[in-house]
């Protein structure tokens, strides 16, 4: 097999631009997930019954559907109720929701895994329940949260490739159309792989740093 370096460098700039879109979608949906996940987790742990059931219901629904279906819903169903967003923002919304739900379960299970002794100790000192969870349990749970959260975030970045179906010009979409235009297959696949590895690798390295910072 001959690797066509000329083709490789000819198409690389277009894919790099696409990587920029992948990076933007990923970071924005990660941000949304990070914002929503603690709220969902706390609603499940501390909320009054109706709020707890709502959070749980939302988690079960989103967990029970393939991300592709959720992305399609965001793109095709939202306009019917008057919410018109670009493919890009539909993608951010859908992926952010998916990420938030998984991250919420990670946070909840990490807090519950601490055992009731820690909660009781805090309650016995006079902490209200929500303060015990936020000020005593959550700091302890952080080191158990981070490793599985990194996994989840890597999955989320990979799931951004699904946005190719709603024509967001991210790595997979651009790579695919380049392949169909040019019939240069291997060179473009290699470029796509390199770009994904760089993006996900940076997230992993960043998270390791954070873990070490927490002394985990």
């Amino acid at each position: 097999m001959i690797f066509d370096w000329v083709a490789f460098f000819e198409y690389f700039p277009r894919l790099i631009r696409a990587a920029g879109v992948t990076l933007q979608v990923s970071l924005l949906s990660l941000g949304l997930a990070c914002l929503l996940a603690p709220l969902l987790a706390l609603a499940r742990l501390l909320g009054p019954k109706p709020l707890r059931s709502m959070a749980q219901g939302m988690i079960e629904v989103v967990r029970g559907l393939p991300p592709l279906v959720i992305i399609a819903f965001a793109y095709f169903a939202l306009p019917k109720v008057g919410v018109v967003l670009s493919g890009f923002w539909c993608g951010v919304l859908a992926l952010g929701l998916v990420g938030a739900v998984y991250a919420a379960e990670i946070i909840r299970s990490a807090i519950e895994s601490l055992g009731c002794g820690q909660l009781e100790a805090a309650l016995a000192l006079g902490f209200a329940r929500w303060r015990a969870v936020l000020e005593i349990l959550l700091p302890q749970a952080l080191r158990r949260i981070l490793p599985p959260l990194t996994n989840e975030f890597a999955n989320l970045i990979k799931a951004s490739s699904l946005l190719s179906v709603i024509s967001v010009h991210e790595i997979s979409q651009v790579g695919q159309s380049l392949i169909f235009e040019t019939f240069v297959v291997i060179e473009i696949l290699v470029q796509m792989a390199i770009l994904y590895l760089i993006i996900i690798g940076s997230v992993t390295i960043l998270s390791r740093r954070l873990e070490r910072g927490l002394g985990a």
Binding site: G117, Q118, E120, A124, L125
Partner: peptide, 16 residues
């Protein structure tokens, strides 16, 4: 609870 201290069998110190 602020006025009643409690000591547990398993200590339950905050490990962090």
């Amino acid at each position: 609870r602020r006025r009643v201290g409690m000591v547990f069998q398993q200590f339950n110190l905050f490990p962090n």
